[in-house]
């Protein structure tokens, strides 16, 4: 069905430009990629002015032929029209000529199309590299979701976001959502997810929450103590040396959604033992004497446990700077040899 929609959408779009050759051309380009199976599939949203045109151009490569990614590129050999305002009087009058049927794609101040595009690829250690481009959403918060994993990022001066995200399911669908409702989606298969045990703690705003992992009996501050102050890298886990922590969410955004995700390569490590997991909540001026909402997600041996909503009663404000340490909130990892 997606494929059909793609064909209709693509054909309508291109035919309306009077550029029939491009359809054949793009088909020919696509046919060169038959049998090529990119793991990352891309879906992009193209903003079209005409309401009766389908808004989503989606590539579905599951049947027939496959399309090189990103499809938006393969679909746009046709020159796009710049903003009419920048054109001379003559050209502007020319809008009544055949090219006038072209949907007036909105563009950014730099003349770039306003499409929101999200692409993904596997980045090792069951991580997914996400690239978001949104030329008309500069320095704007965008929420990124995959199932129950949610966090807020800020786009750059050029409307881009680059972020490496721990996958929370083997077939991971990522959605980027702007405040104005614009979204883009991408899907990726994470084959090495079963190799990792993964625990995520999610919250919103200034919660003072931290996820701590103590590997193989390590004490606080030692090498095996992994937390946002000593997160390590995904590379470390990919080499089966130990776990790492990914901190997601931009602290510069007000009331941003955050996630801390600890991953351990349980499937590939040769060393038996335990990783103790704890949640520490700092008693801050923002949080003292209040209830903090959070959520935990856990994947063990590739199995996603039911998500758990958490309410933490933070001690009173006389204890500013203290920590509420919760050792039983998350189940410790037990690493056994397979």
């Amino acid at each position: 069905m997606d494929k059909k929609r793609y064909l209709i959408a693509g054909a309508t779009f291109l035919a309306s430009l009077g550029a029939g050759y491009a359809v054949q051309n793009s088909g020919a380009i696509a046919s060169q990629f038959v049998g090529d199976a990119p793991t990352a599939r891309v879906t992009a949203t193209i903003e079209l002015a005409s309401a009766n045109l389908p808004k989503v151009i989606s590539s579905d490569s599951t049947k027939g032929f496959r399309i090189p990614s990103p499809p938006a590129e393969s679909l746009t050999p046709v020159p796009r029209l710049p903003d009419a305002e920048g054109l001379s009087e003559r050209v502007r009058r020319g809008e009544t000529l055949p090219v006038a049927a072209v949907p007036a794609t909105t563009h950014s101040a730099f003349g770039l199309p306003c499409d929101v595009e999200l692409t993904s690829h596997n980045a090792g250690a069951a991580m997914v590299q996400l690239s978001l481009s949104a030329a008309c959403h500069l320095n704007e918060p965008v929420e990124i979701r995959q199932g129950d994993l949610v966090f807020t990022m800020n786009t750059s001066n050029t409307g881009a976001v680059e972020v490496s995200v721990p996958a929370m399911s083997r077939d991971a669908v990522y959605t980027a959502i702007f405040k104005d409702g614009k979204t883009a989606t991408t899907e990726v298969t994470v084959d090495d997810l079963a190799e990792y045990d993964r625990v995520a703690l999610l919250w919103e705003g200034e919660s003072g929450l931290h996820l701590h992992a103590l590997e193989y009996g390590a004490q606080h501050g030692e090498n095996g103590h992994v937390w946002s102050g000593a997160p390590r890298s995904a590379n470390y886990a990919a080499r089966a040396r130990g776990g790492f922590l990914a901190r997601l969410g931009d602290p510069h955004i007000e009331n941003a959604k955050f996630a801390e995700v600890y991953s351990f390569p349980s499937g590939s490590t040769a060393r038996e033992g335990a990783v103790r997991l704890s949640v520490e909540a700092e008693v801050t001026a923002y949080t003292c004497d209040q209830d903090i909402m959070a959520k935990s997600l856990q994947i063990r041996r590739g199995e996603l446990y039911p998500a758990l909503d958490i309410t933490l009663s933070i001690p009173e404000c006389s204890g500013l700077g203290d920590f509420l340490v919760l050792k039983n909130l998350l189940q410790d990892l037990s690493i056994a040899q397979n």
């Binding site: 209830d291 039911p306 909503d309 958490i310 309410t311 933490l312 919760l326």
Partner: peptide, 10 residues
Amino acid sequence: LTARRIVTDD
């Protein structure tokens, strides 16, 4: 049913 754990301490 969805579960929520309301925590005072461990």
